[in-house]
Design a protein around this nucleic acid. Sequence first.
RNA 1: GGCGAGGUAGCUCAGUUGGUUAGAGCACAGGAUUCAUAACCCUGAGGUCUCGGGUUCAAAUCCCGAUCUCGCUACCA
Length: 713
Amino acid sequence: MKQETKRYLITAALPYANGLKHIGHLAGAYLPADTYVRYLRAQKRDVVFVCGSDEHGTAIPIQAAKEGITSQEMIDKYHPIIAQNFADLGISFDIYHRTSAPIHHETARAFFEKLNNAGELITKESEQYFDEAANSFLADRYIKGTCPNCSNPGAYGDQCENCGKSLSPDELINPVSTLSGNAPIKKNTTHWYLPLDKHESFLKEWIVGEHGNDWRSNVVGQCKSWIDGGLQPRAVTRDLDWGVKLPSNVKGGEGKVLYVWFDAPIGYISATKQWALDNGKDWRPYWEDAGTKMVHFIGKDNIVFHCIIFPVMLKLYGNILPDNVPANEFMNLEGDKMSTSRNWKLEMQDYIDDFIKPENGGTQMADVLRYYLTQIAPESKDSEFTWKGFQDANNSELVSIFGNFINRSLVLMHKLCKGKVPPLHTTILDDLDRATIEAISAAKDRITHLLEEYKFRDALFEVINLARTGNQYMQKKEPWIIAKRQTVDGELLTVDQQLIDNCLHICLQLTANLAILINPFLPFTAKKICYLLKVVDKILDWENAGSMKLLSVGYSLRAPELLFRKIENEEIEKQVEKLKTASEAKGQELRDTGSEIRVSDIKIKNEIQFDDFAKIDLKVGTIVSAKKVEKADKLLQLQIDLGFETRTIVSGIAMHFKPEEIIGKQVTVVVNLAPRKMRGIESNGMILMAEDASGKLYFIQPSTTIDNGSGIS
RNA sequence: GGCGAGGUAGCUCAGUUGGUUAGAGCACAGGAUUCAUAACCCUGAGGUCUCGGGUUCAAAUCCCGAUCUCGCUACCA
């Protein structure tokens, strides 16, 4: 049974404090969340909007080491910048907290403790890479090696930054500790796990059963896929010294911290607690009372945490569950996906520097970005930011339709109504007047409905459409024509003045309504309209939308000022140029450091004796046939003629070679390697390959063709 | 390979439980107008709804197959 909503708790994904955030993040989570929250506040609902920096995890110390600073210095550097970026763009968190705060550490520890004491966590011993020189277990990030996917020699144990593939340290070829440069050894360690598999049926019932229809299809589909695939216990702790330490009374917990995915979402709770402390409120109902509607705004990369893992944690702890998780897809930029490593991105900071700083445009330009990002929000599929699209949205919608309507209303009012709000002469209202007035409340209803369903782009379209209705109305009324119908002595007939009054009265009330309706989306613009109309911000309360009594008759208004400026071709050309230059510079830098990595980071393996080497039997063979292995993207099944026999070898080179183009090539084969089954095919040996810095593979072969079966030593 | 999400006008996207000539915005063309940031307003052109089968009186919509894009995942001695 669904409870009546008494209060709202809105969260936006915690930004990871290891660098600046780009507009893809903004469009995916923070902007829709802010729009929704501003709408709720205008509805005078009880709402708290929490967010904050995610400051734990291994990437922080890694990045800090790169920059030559401590982890603490690192988060102290990025936290305030990101917070300020959000503020500059009008993202109105009630609190922008941080997970390094003591209250968060306490909260997260208590969470772990309660679950652990209740027996909801299990412990498992496992082998982890350990650096003997540094006397430390190695987090995935601290292990480097060759990427099995793209052969990049600088891949990390959790992910290859060259090809983007997620990895586990065991997959790396030639793993090396980044602490000492030595090859790590495996050592036993105990960790706590959250047994997600125990909660599959609950999750399925809750997501597919309860929310199969009101959650977005991409969210439900992804969750279903995870659940049906079977969930695994997930490690809650890590061997690391940066993060939330385990409670001191937990046996075997020394030197371990909570895994960042576990403590990060708890950051929503600790942020709420801090907000309550700051504002003399009680945080508990927001997390414990069934009358709270909790909504998580995230990007699609975060679905598993907010729909599977965190809900299990919340349920076990006795908290409420999210009512919805409107995850957005990704936003591409000028034809390519946004990427920090390739520097193909538009950071909030860059936009702020180029457009929002007072000398470059001011806050109106924050709203322009908000407008375009909402208009192209990836609500149901990946979308694309282009500078041309940005320019078009601004010039032909904000400037030409929305801004222009308000501007011409004010200009005409000053010219034809002496700068005051004219009266409404109800006796001469016609059908068009009445239809226009009705259109306002109809638009409000549609917008309200769409916002409640998280359909922000549609809702925004309705607002612009209302301005369009205003333009149409004015065009049909043509008050400037009526104004020319003067009598011989240069005066207007009373009835003509009344017609003009009615037109502009309606246009001005419509303008005030536009301020209310645009406010959740473009808050700076709404305020500016209030300023022009000389009304207080209080008028922006949602209940006032639809009213035709927002402006008092006879009240004198300010001289018109433009709400938006045009964006010229040169400006966007400059941005496109900047984007390309930055990514090319980054590409060059990667190529440069790439070769450095090869010199400094590729370690020679431990010394061996000749006998060790002599165990390996290498022979020359020729590929006589090759075909793709079914149901495997990377495997080729090869027949190798070794002179004395022809044998089957399965090799993971399908991404690099087409079967037909390698037939006849001579190769080097390890012929005494133990057989191994792959995808059901037994592989008897291994083909040796060389790889260059870019990850391209080459066969190792004799300088001229020689007899198959020739030995190599 | 498996799973999930998509493939609709030049571009960005809507299309509710299958139902008359498939919609909107932008861009484009023509017209009208001048209060307005050469803005607004009206009209128009435009799509074998990725392709191929099937179910149905009727399919963009349901089923099967193919194909492409994005994501997750498996295979890499």
